[in-house]
């Protein structure tokens, strides 16, 4: 197979197509995307709304399956996997960070972060230890028992980042992570991503904001369901 992924590739897609039936018409959200992301890269996927970047993110995040094309995550072919295997991949290999945080409102920060480990069948004591560590890492070691409504927006997003990190996934996948935050808090969150990047985490941030994308070392622009540009940036200048 000429496109077999190399060992340092976290993501490789080939001719990725995703179409939706809208009544009698077919909408082509993605029209053949070839993308390779290597271990340790920090990539921003940019594009206006309706460009197909969310569709691409859902495919990369294994929340959706492509209409055509191939996708390898950590060398595993994903396109042919069933529901239960996709759930396992999401659990082990991917950490999601959402624009709206998507924390469980009735659960404490600690229990929110434990959630992926629950589905990984980890024993409670181990789970608690790992979740506590993850929260300490994002600077919330003193907020373990707080519920989401007792935390500020920035703190909620930190909880959600801790939840994404707790399984030590191959890929951190953030969808407009600062969309619901003020600029000062946004900046703090982006600094956190950079710190994680320096630790060696592979990070993909989907955004439509240029200044957020500028924090990444590589910017992939999507337009009309295809990659319009793919540029490496000089090391971002930190103010």
């Amino acid at each position: 197979m000429h496109a077999a992924p190399a060992p340092d590739e976290v993501i490789r897609t080939r001719g990725l197509v995703r179409s939706f039936a809208m009544g009698s018409a077919t909408v082509h959200a993605l029209r053949g995307v070839d993308l390779v992301i290597r271990r340790g890269e920090y990539v921003a996927i940019m594009g206006p709304s309706g460009s197909g970047k969310s569709t691409l993110m859902n495919l990369i995040g294994c929340l959706d399956t492509p209409t055509a094309g191939e996708y390898w995550l950590e060398g595993q072919p994903i396109a042919s996997l069933g529901e239960a295997e996709l759930a396992r991949i999401r659990n082990r290999e991917i950490g999601f960070v959402f624009q709206t945080f998507n924390l469980l409102p009735r659960a404490s920060a600690l229990r929110n972060v434990e959630l992926p480990l629950v589905y990984a069948q980890m024993p409670p004591a181990e789970r608690r230890r790992r979740a506590t560590e993850a929260l300490q890492k994002v600077g919330l070691g003193d907020r373990l028992d707080h519920r989401p409504n007792e935390l500020s927006g920035g703190q909620r997003q930190r909880v959600s980042i801790a939840r994404a990190l707790v399984t030590n996934p191959a890929l951190l996948l953030a969808d407009e992570p600062t969309g619901n935050l003020d600029s000062k808090t946004s900046h703090e969150i982006m600094l956190l991503f950079e710190a994680l990047h320096r630790e060696g985490h592979t990070i993909v941030v989907v955004t439509h904001e240029r200044d957020i994308a500028e924090h990444a070392e590589r910017v992939v622009t999507i337009r009309d369901g295809a990659i319009a540009s793919d540029e490496r940036q000089p090391r971002p200048v930190r103010p």
Binding site: R90, N91, N102, L104, L115, P116, Y119, A120, R163
Partner: peptide, 16 residues
């Protein structure tokens, strides 16, 4: 519904 979405995103299978 949203909670179910979150659980699925972090790795809950249909069986879970």
């Amino acid at each position: 519904t949203r909670e179910i979405g979150v659980r699925k995103a972090v790795g809950a299978s249909q069986r879970d």
